Amino acid sequence: MTAAQRFAELRPRLVRIAYSELGDLSEAEDVVQEAWLRLERAGADSVCDLERWLTVVVARLALDALRSARARRETYVGPWLPEPLLSPDATEDPADRVTLDETVSYALLAVLEQLSPAERTAFVLHDVFDVPFDEVADVVGRTPQAVRQLASRARRHVEHQRPRFQPTRAEHDDAVRAFASAIAEGDLAELIAVLDPDVIWTTDGGGQATAARKPLRGADRVARAWMALRRKPAIAPEATPVAVNGHLGLTIAVTDGHAMVLSFVVERRRITRIDAVRNPDKVRHALARARP
């Protein structure tokens, strides 16, 4: 097998690693392409373990890109949310869903945004992709023991943010469908019923589309805000089901011409978090990638 063939075989995993570090698929693909160019310059014959070499190089490049991105995001208009990965429906084969859920879950990516770049990298590489600590140490430039501590801190944070009661696929999908039905019918009571009392709704407009600058909290406030959009009307009543990083989500047309992609976190049959991506660049890329 040639180096090019082996790289093509490894590329999906490398892109998932970079995407999990960055939360931006376009940047992740650029990182992986740069890794290939570096391999060509170095000469594949000089590399003993191609998978290990590419994993370390991609992770290092992604870490550098993440540090740069964090500086840019300090001036970002409103909340920054990861770029979603869309597919036409949420009926993937269960084996495929496990891969997606473990590597690029949207809810996990949102939580990882709260970590330092080094913590995020250590957690993604070790806990998600099973990269040994000595290799992770090569990426972040610290000792294996220091990397263990980084991963441990990140793991505690992720566990604290993760729902205590993980929903089944049916429970998640039922809650999302109930949300879509309430929006379509303009039923405030139905919408409040499917929302957790402490639900949080975050919208990423990136300064290019109308969006709240701060998250909205509480079932009554969130539900009434959605009903206000429905009555204006600022949004189309009918939402389109779509798989967002392997879980059922929605896309909704908006009268300003910039659609939104919705991702949901569900616990005990109620929606605890709604992430709405309205940044036209992210939505356009996501929709384009979802087309056959």
Rank of each mutant, 00 (worst) to 15 (best):
Q114H: 14
R73E: 13
D89G: 07
L63I: 06
E190P: 00
S105G: 08
P197F: 02
P167C: 01
V47H: 06
A276K: 00
A189V: 13
F179K: 04
S20T: 13
H258G: 00
G206F: 06
T55N: 02
D45P: 00
A236S: 15
D89F: 07
D173C: 02
T103V: 05
R177V: 10
P163H: 02
E21V: 15
V199D: 02
D30T: 12
R284S: 14
M1F: 12
L248R: 12
R270P: 08
R230L: 06
R278V: 01
D96E: 14
E92R: 13
S152A: 11
T240K: 14
F123H: 13
L61E: 11
A62G: 12
L61T: 03
L25H: 12
V158D: 08
E171I: 03
P82F: 09
S116F: 02
T203K: 05
E21N: 14
N245K: 03
M260R: 09
Q161L: 07
A71V: 15
P94Q: 04
A239R: 06
A65R: 15
Q33L: 09
N279Q: 10
E238A: 10
A154T: 04
S20H: 04
L195H: 02
T255R: 13
T143M: 03
D281H: 13
R156D: 10
V222S: 01
L109H: 13
G205P: 05
D174A: 15
R289A: 15
D281L: 12
L195A: 01
N279A: 08
I17W: 04
A107N: 13
D281V: 14
Q149G: 00
R289Q: 14
R73M: 12
Q5A: 15
F165N: 10
I252G: 00
Y106H: 11
I235C: 06
G23M: 11
R97L: 14
D101M: 08
D275G: 01
A223T: 06
D196V: 01
A182V: 08
V131L: 11
R41C: 00
R13V: 06
A223E: 05
M227D: 05
R41M: 07
T255D: 11
Y76E: 11
L81F: 07
D198W: 01
A59Y: 03
R291L: 13
F129W: 03
L10G: 09
D138Q: 14
E135C: 00
T2S: 15
I274C: 06
D138P: 00
W36G: 01
A178R: 15
Y19G: 05
L112P: 05
P237G: 02
G205Y: 07
D196G: 02
S152L: 09
A239E: 05
R289I: 09
V140W: 06
L188Y: 07
A95G: 11
A4N: 12
P233F: 00
D64N: 06
L37F: 09
E190K: 14
E51R: 14
R148E: 12
R70L: 10
A59I: 05
L25R: 15
D256A: 06
E29G: 07
V128Y: 01
E238P: 00
L66V: 10
S105L: 06
A243G: 15
A243T: 10
D101Q: 12
P79A: 07
P241S: 06
E92T: 09
N279Y: 12
